[in-house]
Design a binder for these strands. Structure first.
Lengths: 230, 230
DNA sequence: ACGAAAAGTCAACGCATGTTCACATAAACT
DNA sequence: AGTTTATGTGAACATGCGTTGACTTTTCGT
């Protein structure tokens, strides 16, 4: 028995008020948190093998479950979202410096603390580290520059922290920055290696931890024999 | 006196054979070289602040001056083009190893040769290095993996080259690889720094050359005091 | 309780993209 | 000369995109 069900002609102009399309619970749940939700969704999608400038806001809003235009309620455009991602990501990085500052016993223990904190943070904030690594050379100029600014700042902070070590008390400032840059680069490389592996390859993670510690220790081994003027 | 000129009804099906749209010279000039031209155009566009997976083949063919569909005559898809870019880029990188092999005087002169060769190559093949740096963490999985494979190969070759130095004669293989990886990472970082600066900032280029040499020298300073077992 | 502000919706636009297909032309081979 | 092969063309399609504008619903401060 087929009812014709002839698409009842209603007199509504554009939208049918009899069909509220969003169960009110959803809206209630994320009261004022949609910006946050957008950020998290972006991280999630970017983790799924996309680069930021290949991420469309339609895809993003689809993921979040809102209509495309609603995006503009929270960000004026994609670039602004990108900058928010940068800011969010670097909060994670600073935790490493905090961990380091709590450990002033010896350079050896400091290296160990540093690497372990790094590895733990990568595990916990995987997506943010991935974002930083990828977009550091990515297609969006604004995002790229923001990341580099932050990275230099980080390196600078590390240099001043190093300056406080008795081991390095008579090093010149430029040399300290040189050392800090070398260490940061080694760390960045390690992070990238960890990110390469599957997200749960504990074995590789341990190996890489050891590798990083070895490399940093090799670096500081040269320190006592260093004379700045060559 | 206006002639109506009523759009003379011709019997052609689709295209008007009376208007050959491409001056035959163009076609003659690139006889069999369009694939090459596409590769160069891709490098050019990517240098202009784009990431590979945000590069459309329409944009690319537009740049080259052929119609979009002609792309398929040379590559089955964008990914294949990407792999060609990777292959092309790494040819440049290997020149550095060749330069190094010609210099076996001392570790100090070797470092100098290595850095200078690196800097010169970056200047000459700027776009390729930029491509490698960007797409190493880029959005296209195939390209990304190809780059990493090549980079590991490069590091491996460096390690075996290092093994020949008398200075390092009693180092274990894993330790040599550890050292090579540390050096490659430092070099990668330097390249990225150079690429950051404007393409003609000679001053920064010299500064960075010095920085790189310092960092590598600091690394080898630690070498004599290294004992593998910790 | 009410009015303003914040957050979300829908329809519609113009535009760029990837891919197909049938066709055109130049070059190379025999 | 005649055929084959490599290369390029043009029309057409379905799809996804960013952005606009006018509208509705929920939340919040007073």
């Amino acid at each position: 028995m087929w009812s014709f069900s002839p698409a009842p002609i209603t007199l509504v102009h554009m939208t049918d008020p009899a069909v509220p399309e969003l169960p009110p619970s959803r809206r209630l749940l994320r009261r004022g948190n949609t910006a946050r939700t957008l950020i998290e969704a972006a991280f999630k999608l970017l983790d799924r093998n996309k680069s930021f400038d290949a991420l469309s806001q339609r895809e993003l809003t689809r993921e979040v479950g809102i209509v495309p235009t609603a995006f503009y309620r929270h960000f004026p455009g994609m670039e602004a979202l990108g900058l928010a991602l940068v800011e969010d990501s670097f909060r994670a990085l600073r935790e490493i410096l905090d961990d380091m500052r709590k450990d002033v016993r010896s350079t050896d223990s400091l290296i160990s603390t540093m690497v372990k904190s790094l590895v733990r943070n990568v595990r916990e904030h995987r997506q943010r580290f991935r974002f930083i690594a990828a977009e550091r050379h990515g297609g969006n100029a604004g995002v790229r520059e923001a990341i580099r600014r932050e990275l230099r700042l980080f390196q600078s902070e590390l240099a001043t922290d190093l300056a406080r070590l008795p081991y390095l008390k008579d090093w010149s400032t430029p040399d300290l920055h040189m050392l800090a840059s070398l260490m940061v680069n080694a760390m960045v490389a390690i992070v990238e290696e960890i990110l390469d592996r599957g997200r749960s390859d504990k074995n590789a993670e341990r190996e890489l931890t050891e590798l990083a510690e070895k490399q940093l220790r090799l670096i500081v081994l040269g320190v006592p024999h260093w004379r700045s003027g060559r």
